[in-house]
C-alpha cells in the first residue's frame, strides 16, 4: 500500500472516530429505566434523541406494546406522546386501550393517536413528528415485514430525532429485524408470572426482554418487571403479591428446629 493511500486511510479512520465520539457526546442525555443491570449495559439508561426498535412475534404484541409504553413513559418526561399506527395493526393486535394505559400508571391525557392508513403515511407522519421538539416521544407501530422501512427511512428518522431531541420508538410486530440506524434493538416476549397457585393474581407486567443490538455497549437478556405505581422498570419480584409479614408475637417455626439440631 502506498504512503499516500495509507495516510488517506488514517485520515478517514480519524474522521470516523471523531464522528463517533461526537455522537457519544451528543447522546449523553439518558434516562434510567430502573432495572440496574439493563441501565448498566446501556451506560446509564435509554438514550434520548435516538431511535429504538422493539420487535416481537405476532402473538406477543401486547407484551411488546407494554414494554414500548414503559419506555415511552420513562423518556417522555410528562411531555405529549404521539402514537402513530397503521390501520392493519389494529385489526391484528387490537387497539391501544387508554384504560389499560391508565392501569399501567401512565397518563392517557398526553397521548395523541395518529391512525395512518398505510405505511407511507405512517413513516412520513413520524418523521414530521420527530422533528417537533414539543413532543416527548414518538411511537411508530407497524405490523409485519415492511419493504418501505429500509436503511434510508431509518436514517431519516434518526436524523430527525437527533435534531429535535425527541425519542423515537419503533414497535415492530410480527417482523424480522433488518439493518437500521437504531440505537438499541430489543426482542420482546411475555414472561411467566412467578410460580403460585392457579387462583391468584398475576402481579405486575413482566417482560422477557432481549437486547439484540446496542450501539454503545454489550447485549443481553433479562426479565424486567414494570412497576405500575412508580412508573419504572425493576428486577423481577419473586412473588406476585406482597407476602403477609410474619406475625411478631409468634416465633418463627424454623428457628427452634435449627436450635435443637445445633
Amino acid at each position: 500500500m502506498s504512503g499516500a493511500r495509507k495516510s488517506a486511510l488514517a485520515t478517514l479512520r480519524g474522521q470516523i472516530e471523531r464522528i463517533e465520539t461526537a455522537e457519544v457526546v451528543h447522546q449523553q442525555d439518558r434516562v434510567a429505566l430502573g432495572h440496574n443491570e439493563v441501565d448498566g449495559v446501556l451506560k446509564g439508561g435509554l438514550a434520548r434523541a435516538a431511535i429504538h426498535e422493539v420487535f416481537c412475534e405476532g402473538r406477543q404484541g401486547a407484551a411488546a406494546t407494554g414494554f414500548v409504553m414503559g419506555l415511552a413513559g420513562r423518556v417522555s418526561a410528562r411531555r405529549p406522546l404521539l402514537w402513530v399506527r397503521q390501520d392493519f395493526s389494529e385489526v391484528e393486535a387490537g387497539a391501544l386501550s387508554m384504560s389499560g394505559l391508565a392501569e399501567l400508571g401512565l397518563d392517557p391525557r398526553r397521548v395523541v393517536m395518529v391512525r395512518a392508513a398505510d405505511v407511507e403515511s405512517a413513516l412520513r407522519t413520524s418523521a414530521d413528528a420527530l422533528a417537533c421538539d414539543a413532543l416527548g416521544a414518538v411511537v411508530l407501530e407497524l405490523w409485519g415485514d415492511i419493504r418501505q422501512f429500509d436503511l434510508v427511512a431509518s436514517r431519516k428518522l434518526t436524523l430527525a430525532a437527533q435534531g429535535s431531541g425527541v425519542t423515537g420508538l419503533m414497535l415492530r410486530m410480527a417482523a424480522q429485524p433488518l439493518p437500521s440506524t437504531a440505537e438499541t434493538r430489543w426482542m420482546l416476549r411475555a414472561a411467566h408470572s412467578p410460580p403460585g397457585p392457579m387462583w391468584s393474581a398475576w402481579g405486575a407486567p413482566r417482560f422477557d426482554a432481549e437486547l439484540l443490538r446496542n450501539r454503545h455497549g454489550p447485549c443481553g437478556r433479562w426479565i424486567m418487571e414494570w412497576n405500575c405505581d412508580e412508573c419504572q422498570f425493576s428486577e423481577p419480584s419473586t412473588y406476585s403479591q406482597p407476602v403477609a409479614a410474619a406475625p411478631a408475637h409468634r416465633p418463627d417455626p424454623a428457628v427452634p428446629w435449627q436450635r435443637r439440631t445445633a
Binding site: A102, L104, A204, P205, C228
Partner: peptide, 19 residues
C-alpha cells in the same frame, strides 16, 4: 379526569382491546 388507578394492584384492564 380519568378514573384513578388502585395502588399496588396489577392492571385490571388490558392494554390492547379488540374492537
Amino acid at each position: 379526569e380519568w378514573p384513578v388507578r388502585t395502588e399496588s394492584e396489577p392492571p385490571l384492564r388490558p392494554l390492547r382491546l379488540f374492537d
